[in-house]
């Protein structure tokens, strides 16, 4: 064993990581090499001095340091707790946001549409007086008729559905409506109407 190898083994020995047979080899080397013996001795004494310094007393920190630490901690607010919940449940948060946005936009649509709106074929044949939409006697509307924010007065025929949103309807005895008659005046049923029409629109287009 040369001295370089022995030095490496010395350190491993000090780290308690030397196999017993290698310890034996190292000791054999010490027996024939006074320089390495001296070196090991020095290393061991260095280590003792290092461990010795640990026992040396250090004046403890001033008490106010602990108090300072506690005082310097940022306050965790309620909002942060809330935020953490949001972070932990991203899917629910996104779903809730989606529903909220849908609901708000639907509501605003509902509140905005205050003007008379008539939808259907042959509109020029209808009589409109103020917010009154009249289907004259003898006239046939060839399809669905929708009246929003107005009164529908039907004397003639409607070959389809009649839908009145936020308004009233007046069906004369001569009126004939082949489809369904629907009256919508609540936000929720209006929403339902829009949603079902959205889907049927998708289905038929």
């Amino acid at each position: 064993m040369d001295c370089k190898q022995a030095l490496s083994l010395m350190h491993d020995y000090m780290d308690n990581e030397l196999a017993p047979n290698q310890v034996l080899l190292l000791k054999e080397h010490f027996a024939v090499c006074p320089a390495c013996t001296e070196r090991y001795d020095q290393l061991e004494r260095t280590e003792m001095m290092l461990f010795g310094i640990k026992t040396q007393r250090i004046e403890p920190m001033a008490d106010f340091v602990t108090a300072n630490i506690m005082a310097s901690l940022p306050k965790k607010t309620k909002q942060r707790v809330w935020l953490r919940w949001v972070k932990n449940h991203p899917a629910i948060t996104v779903a809730a946001m989606f529903v909220m946005v849908m609901f708000i936009s639907a509501l605003s649509f509902w509140n905005q549409d205050r003007e008379l709106m008539v939808k259907g074929p042959d509109l020029d044949k209808l009589i409109i007086e103020g917010d009154k939409v009249i289907v004259p006697k003898g006239h046939v509307v060839a399809g669905d008729l929708t009246v929003q924010n107005g009164q529908a007065e039907v004397y003639g025929e409607v070959n389809g559905n009649l839908t009145v949103i936020e308004g009233s309807m007046n069906l004369a005895s001569t009126a004939h409506i082949s489809g369904q008659v629907t009256k919508i005046d609540e936000a929720m049923s209006w929403l339902w109407y829009r949603i079902t029409h959205m889907f049927s629109g998708v289905a038929y287009n």
Partner: peptide, 28 residues
């Protein structure tokens, strides 16, 4: 842990004041 960290910092920096700062920063 404050004393352990203080001793570590004091041995590393050899300066009381800086070591106390390190302890505070560590816990923060």
């Amino acid at each position: 842990y404050k004393d352990k960290i203080f001793h570590l910092a004091y041995r590393m920096l050899n300066n009381r004041h800086e070591a106390e700062d390190v302890v505070q920063d560590t816990f923060l």
